[in-house]
């Protein structure tokens, strides 16, 4: 397992942002890149590789990776539906959105569909309270959700996965 040359250049560019000897500061940005590159989650060999790149002990990577919610410690589906469930979204119907996804996909919170396509990951406030209910899908937010929009989104993603 190794980053591509392009990613390695990016890694070096990130490390150069910090003073000499403070390369550990690049850890969280590197974990984001690693998670994107190696299947959407951080397996132990992936974390060990990041430790090697930064010349730090593997435990320093494990303790950070397990602290932050954006890092997945077990495999996830191709599409992770991170639906916000905190107060302001709740006021605008996030409970119904989450229940609908559970019923539609036949999974509970934190589970992945048997075909490996979808994981439902209820999330805490994502900073889109004015456009609630909402979810994070990969890099972007899907906002002002309705049951119909969620249905259409899931169908679109299923179609995209086939192509």
């Amino acid at each position: 397992m190794k980053f591509s040359q392009e990613k390695l250049n990016k890694v070096n560019e990130i490390i150069a942002r910090y003073p000499e000897g403070k390369q550990k500061s690049a850890l969280i940005p590197l974990l984001h890149i690693a998670q994107e590159e190696f299947g959407g989650w951080l397996d132990v060999p992936v974390m060990d590789y990041v430790a090697e790149l930064l010349h730090i002990n593997p435990i320093e990577v494990y303790e950070v990776a397990t602290f932050y919610t954006m890092f997945n410690m077990k495999p996830v589906g191709k599409y992770v539906l991170e639906v916000c469930q905190t107060g302001p979204c709740m006021l605008r119907g996030s409970d119904q959105i989450i229940d609908h996804i559970k019923n539609k996909l036949g999974i509970q919170a934190g589970e992945t569909t048997p075909d490996g396509l979808f994981t439902l990951k209820p999330a805490e406030c994502l900073g889109a309270c004015g456009y609630a209910p909402m979810m994070q899908l990969g890099k972007f937010f899907k906002e002002n959700l309705t049951i119909e929009k969620v249905d259409a989104l899931i169908e679109d993603l299923k179609a995209a996965a086939k192509n």
Binding site: R17, S25, F67, Y68, F71
Partner: peptide, 12 residues
């Protein structure tokens, strides 16, 4: 002066 952007990992 240089300005750098760093992303966090999801922690209030």
């Amino acid at each position: 002066c240089e300005i750098y952007v760093q992303r966090g990992g999801g922690a209030y």
